[in-house]
């Protein structure tokens, strides 16, 4: 007999009953609207059990990979355990192993956790200074790198970024939370062409996603475009050039708005023009956009209007806080 486990309660499902209807019958207040698998307002996450394919129609690959499903279209065959609360709220201690300034205002921080820490390269974690937290994206690859790697831009008057830049040193402990976010590589179609574009420390998740894809033997071309204002703002430049020499299908482009000398891979072409030159037919590509929120949203709209499918655009917009 099919049943679900939700909030430690076992709930039996009637023949042909959906998870949404069972939860509503029990009095749980589950957001929902169309009840037809379209609006996605009843999206939930399974932590154990088999999700029927029909409950994941129309979801992004990255959502499927994390066990998300639509409760209104879900009629499980057996048992399904559903996450009642956001699992990501637990704090996890981490130790600073490396603290290196890699450009003008960017710190590379590498952390070690005592307990197992599972994530997808490109997802982000919250880092705490007392009760204040900021989100930073992961440049490292789970299962390949021993340490978690973050790139932290120092923000003028930023409480957390200045503290990480100037006060934190190797050996110090900090609190972090589980990784979240939908901007990561899925290996379903390894032939696909990938466009990875971002500005500033948006490079962190993009490097993670590129290395993750290459490590999983992605066969299609991968183009990484990093947009910055000045040449001094480029970082990990040599590593990316080395990667493009090491892998036949990896290409690196640096879009530098103010540059005196323009030698490939550096170009002064703006990032929005550059990506549409590279991915001239955006519908044939999978797109990953990271960094400044306004730029990410602008690029997303341009790619979509030029033919990219919304389900093939993955974004990690950095939302800056006032302090």
């Amino acid at each position: 007999m099919a049943h679900i486990i939700f909030d430690d309660e076992r709930i039996e499902l009637d023949q042909g009953q959906t998870v949404l209807s069972a939860l509503l019958d029990k009095g749980y207040d589950i957001p929902n609207s169309c009840r037809a698998g379209a609006c996605q307002s009843c999206m939930m996450q399974a932590v154990d059990g088999n999700i029927p394919d029909s409950a994941q129609q129309g979801l992004k690959e990255t959502e499927k990979a994390q066990g998300y499903f639509l409760a209104c279209s879900c009629m499980p065959d057996e048992a399904l355990t559903i996450a009642a609360h956001d699992q990501s709220s637990l704090c996890i201690p981490a130790t600073v192993i490396e603290h290196t300034i890699v450009s003008n205002d960017i710190l590379k921080l590498r952390l070690k956790t005592e307990q197992d820490f599972n994530y997808r390269a490109g997802q982000f974690i919250n880092v705490f200074k007392d009760s204040l937290s900021r989100s930073y994206s992961l440049a490292s690859v789970d299962g390949v790198d021993d340490l978690l790697e973050l790139h932290i831009r120092r923000i003028e008057n930023g409480i957390v970024s200045n503290w990480l830049h100037h006060e934190i040193k190797p050996g110090d402990k900090l609190d972090i939370q589980q990784a979240s976010g939908n901007c990561f590589y899925t290996s379903e179609t390894s032939e696909e062409k990938l466009l990875l574009a971002g500005t500033g420390t948006g490079l962190a998740p993009l490097i993670g996603i590129a290395r993750d894809a290459l490590q999983q033997n992605h066969a299609g071309d991968i183009h990484l475009v990093h947009g910055v204002k000045q040449v001094d703002d480029l970082y990990m430049h040599q590593l990316l050039i080395d990667m493009s020499q090491q892998f036949d299908n990896f290409y690196y482009h640096a879009s530098v708005l103010q540059a005196d000398k323009v030698i490939a891979p550096v170009t002064t072409e703006s990032i929005d023009k550059l990506i549409l030159n590279i991915a001239a037919k955006p519908s044939e590509w999978k797109h990953y956009l990271c960094g400044d929120e306004i730029i990410v949203n602008t690029l997303k709209k341009k790619l979509f209007l030029a033919g990219a499918s919304m389900s093939n655009i993955f974004t990690d917009p950095f939302i800056s806080s006032s302090d």
Partner: peptide
């Protein structure tokens, strides 16, 4: 938000295509 808008429009299209909906 374009993602949210896409989902709303899926709901709208389902409705006008004569599909199941509770609007």
């Amino acid at each position: 938000d374009m993602e949210q808008q896409i989902n709303k429009q899926k709901g709208f299209l389902t409705m006008v295509f004569g599909g199941p909906n509770n609007y």
